[in-house]
Design a protein around this nucleic acid. Structure first.
Length: 480
RNA sequence: GGCGUGGUAGCCAAGUGGUAAGGCCGAGCUCUGCAAAAGCUCUAUCGCGGGUUCGAUUCCCGCCCACGCCUCCA
């Protein structure tokens, strides 16, 4: 096992991960709310978490990856009401869509993917223990709130102190005052009493019918599945406050000990320099990008090539850059594998099974150092391309070639780039008869070594938007 | 107002107290009749003004600009 460090939002410092138990790292990721297709900003975070997991595994640890599905909340309920469909039908549909997107982007499946609606007892019992310890209180309408003042360390993660004094922004909004009978503005809801707008979505509880508050599910489910491995908890920056601070408060109060050690937050994705929004027409789903003709692996590259703690500015241009860069990686992979007796798929499989963790990094040492140091993907890619150039201009022994091939593919695995799916050729488009005829005439002129005529035909084709590429003993035509 | 991030070549983007990785694009070269592909080579003094220092893009102060969270948004 080699050290892997990540920035910890709690300490604001880079810290090496340290398994609580054995060589297993527990990793909890806040997952999607399944009420619509996730956008590429959501996937930016899930991809960063995926590379994180792959990197930890590549270093030699086992990872238990838990990522929840929020299948009950205001948005999911609103959607089911709007479509007059049962909540479950709505959430199952969008869960499927989410899984399809994950697969296309080559995300490893979490071993556990718990749903909020399937963990109601865990959540209510956590609330009961909080009430018992006087960290929470029920209101007359049957809701339950967490008493923030009962947890002095509240806000340690976001470092937002005295939230009550800074709720100007919040108090500007009506804030659904019927619902808020809390003692303090800072208190947050653990259990929401049933309201007419909830339709038939409710569960019975000691406080009457209702449903759990959003922050609670992650606490209950992470404690259930990772109680012995409270190592890493991560999500998008926007979750730092209040979601994660709330999770810490309710979890530590209920279980009486520290919650997760390492908190990792991924910065947002910007599109064309600003926030994604439907009105600006820069709101993309994975489908939207693929429909433009890009391979999923290209999207993956574009969404992961910047540092995860840095906002990425996504542009269609960045996809073109990604396509070219991936082509070079694939070319190198093909070349170096050809120089060995290794096959890409079997090699990647053995890496996935952890069989290559001790293999030397050879020329890719620096790339690994970058990747394992707070997941500096941009730095790692730089080092990879530098190493490639170096290897290309050196005579390697068979042994060295094999070593470097393995090292390179360990990085490819960690980054999750499916090089097999990188399409180097432009998609073939059937040419109109007129074009085919011109191309054929050019070919004949070329065969007759009538270069002048051949060039004229080439020029004509070019004017019409077609390019002729000569191959060994034939030719191809494609659009420019 | 509070908490926080960033301003590095045409675009994207690492990084360091000692004169700046890498990718894309572009240009040149090699190879091909031409073209394409591929390979090689080339392209910045790091937002502005001060300060500390033998020396700062990197540390400190001020300013300008952009952006995020503080609303059940990844």
């Amino acid at each position: 096992m080699t050290p892997v460090t990540f920035h910890n939002t709690l300490s604001r410092q880079n810290e090496a991960i340290q398994p609580t138990k054995g060589n297993v790292i527990g990793m909890y990721c806040c997952g999607p709310t399944v009420y619509a297709q996730a956008h590429i900003g959501n996937f930016r975070t899930f991809l960063a978490q995926d590379v994180m997991r792959r990197t930890i595994q590549t270093a030699g640890y086992k990872v238990i990856h838990v990522r929840n599905l929020t299948d009950v909340d205001d948005k999911t309920i609103a959607k089911s009401v709007a479509e007059a469909k049962p909540l479950r039908e709505v959430t199952e549909h969008w869960t499927e869509v989410f899984h399809d997107d994950c697969e296309r982007l080559n995300l490893l499946k979490p071993q556990i993917e718990p749903k909020a609606t399937e963990h109601i007892p865990e959540q209510t019992s956590m609330i009961e223990s909080l009430i018992e310890k006087e960290n929470a209180y029920a209101t007359e309408d049957g809701s339950v709130y967490f008493r923030v003042s009962s947890f002095p360390e509240y806000g340690a993660l976001s470092r937002v102190k005295d939230r009550e004094l800074t709720t100007d922004a919040a108090s500007d909004t009506p804030n659904d005052s019927d619902e808020y009978e809390r003692d303090s503005m800072a208190d947050f809801v653990l259990w929401k009493s049933r309201k007419p707008t909830d339709g038939d979505v409710y569960w019975d509880s000691p406080w009457g019918q209702g449903r759990p508050g959003w922050h609670l599910e992650c606490s209950a489910m992470s404690m259930k599945y990772l109680s012995n491995n409270l190592d890493i908890h991560s999500g998008g920056v926007d979750l730092t406050f209040p979601h994660h601070d709330n999770e810490i408060a309710q979890s530590e109060c209920s279980c009486g000990h520290k919650f997760f050690k390492h908190w990792i937050h991924c910065a947002h994705l910007l599109v064309d320099g600003g926030k994604m929004s439907k009105s600006l027409n820069n709101f993309y789903t994975v489908d939207d990008i693929l429909k433009k003709g890009y391979q999923p692996v290209v999207l993956r590259y574009a969404l992961t090539s910047g540092h995860y703690r840095q906002t990425i500015n996504f542009t269609l241009d960045s996809l073109n850059a990604a396509q070219s860069a991936l082509t070079r990686l694939k070319k190198f992979s093909d070349d170096i594998l050809a120089a060995t007796s290794l096959k890409r798929s079997t090699l990647l499989k053995s890496i996935d099974k952890g069989k290559q963790t001790k293999a030397p990094w050879a020329k890719f040492q620096k790339a690994w150092d970058q990747l394992s140091n707070d997941l500096n993907i941009a730095g790692a890619l730089g080092a990879i391309f530098t190493a490639i150039k170096e290897i290309n201009s050196t005579e390697l022994s068979n042994e060295e070639a094999a070593e470097n091939a393995i090292a390179f593919h360990k990085l490819v695995y960690a980054l999750g780039y499916d090089l097999d799916s990188v399409v180097i050729e432009k998609p073939k488009i059937e040419a109109p008869e007129e074009i085919k005829a011109l191309a054929q005439q050019r070919w004949e002129a070329k065969q007759a070594k009538d270069w002048t005529a051949a060039d004229q035909f080439r020029a004509q084709l070019q004017e019409k938007g077609w390019l002729v590429k000569d191959t060994k003993d034939s030719y191809e035509i494609e659009t420019i």
